[in-house]
Amino acid sequence: MRRCDVVVVGLGLMGSAALDALLSAGVDAIGFDPLGPASDRGSSHGSCRIFRRFNFENDNYTGLSDEAHAGWTRLEASSGESILVPCPVLEAGLPGSAAVAASHAAAIANGRPDPTRSAAEINDQFPAFALPADWDAVVQDGGAILKAELALRIMRARAGERVIAEAARIDPRSAGVLVRSRSEDVLAQRVILALGPWLSRALPEIGSVLNVTRQAVGWFRPARPETVLPGQFPIFILDLGIDNTVYGFPDFEQRGVKAAPHNHGRTVDADDWEPPATDAELATTADALARFIPGAAGPILERDVCLYTNTLPADRRPDSGAEFIIDRWRDPRLIIASPCSGHGAKFAPAIGARLARLATDPNYEVEPFFQLSRYSAFA
């Protein structure tokens, strides 16, 4: 039986960032995950995610974004690879959009110039767009395309033989937490569970505050390819009304415009990745492109499915749900990595650092809005 200080179970962006932070600090740590960086499963699969400095979801996230940006920059410097591709972020929506207003407020509160733009200015600056004249809009700086798969490859490579490409299960014992896989038994003092939609398989009780949803993703053949290239086209987030948001990217990979709904899809099991995204699931996205970004509209070239692991609204420290949990479990030897609610990828270096500290510093506590005790069931 091997022994180590910390085991990380699940090596998506959060788990890999935690393992990287532990190993960089000289901690004896090992990671388990049967899925490689090129897998089509897991919450972190796929080539890209959005990096935003200013976040409409929560006022607390700007500092987290800045911390994460510094982490991504360090990873770029150490690897010689470009992980963040700078790109403006356009957020637009119906008049009175709360999301646009919140992003605007976050930028102003952090000393940035007023990001407000009229629809006419947007349509002139980005010719692929045809926003209605009365829409609210902001264009934020500090945004980027996060090359998620590349980041995973780099962090996994840095860990080297400390990665065991197998599924693992945990068995708390008096002497530590036994982590068992097909070929390895490891006794650890602490275990970080970064299992995404599979988290409630390891800790069934936490399923009471989580909801896993199926999210459809598509790549669209643009009607005007020259208007959707990087430099001509922003990352976009369109607020189309209650529980109806569509986001997308420039065609930076020459495979079409990646776009998807951000509203929660149907509730599914952690293993429900089939069938591929359907036309019906992508209908609102296709319609939004046709109406508001006609230069990007066109036939669907590729399809994918992502699973969001969403937190339910909290009661003791009220929030609206779709937040993160980064905390120790009831057995403090177990640390829970964020169920990211579909918007956590950009924060991975900052969340990984918190997970590493939770596993190594018994006096460390994360910010209250990340703590599990915000739910009465776990107070």
Rank of each mutant, 00 (worst) to 15 (best):
D124T: 15
F126H: 06
L131R: 07
P132K: 13
D134Q: 15
W135K: 10
V139Y: 11
V139F: 06
Q140K: 08
Q140A: 09
G142E: 09
R153Y: 05
R153G: 14
R153E: 15
R158I: 05
A159I: 02
A159L: 06
G160E: 12
R162D: 03
I164M: 03
A165V: 01
A165I: 01
A168I: 01
I170H: 00
I170Y: 02
P172Y: 01
S174I: 09
A175Y: 01
R180H: 11
S181A: 06
R182P: 01
Q189C: 01
Q189H: 13
R190T: 09
V191F: 01
I192Y: 00
A194I: 11
A194S: 15
A194M: 11
A194E: 06
P197R: 09
L199C: 08
L199D: 09
S200F: 10
R201D: 08
A202G: 02
A202H: 05
L203M: 07
E205T: 12
E205C: 04
S208L: 13
Q215W: 07
P222N: 07
P222T: 12
A223F: 03
V228P: 12
Q232W: 13
F233R: 10
D239V: 11
T245N: 07
V246N: 11
V246Y: 09
P250C: 03
D251A: 05
F252T: 06
E253L: 15
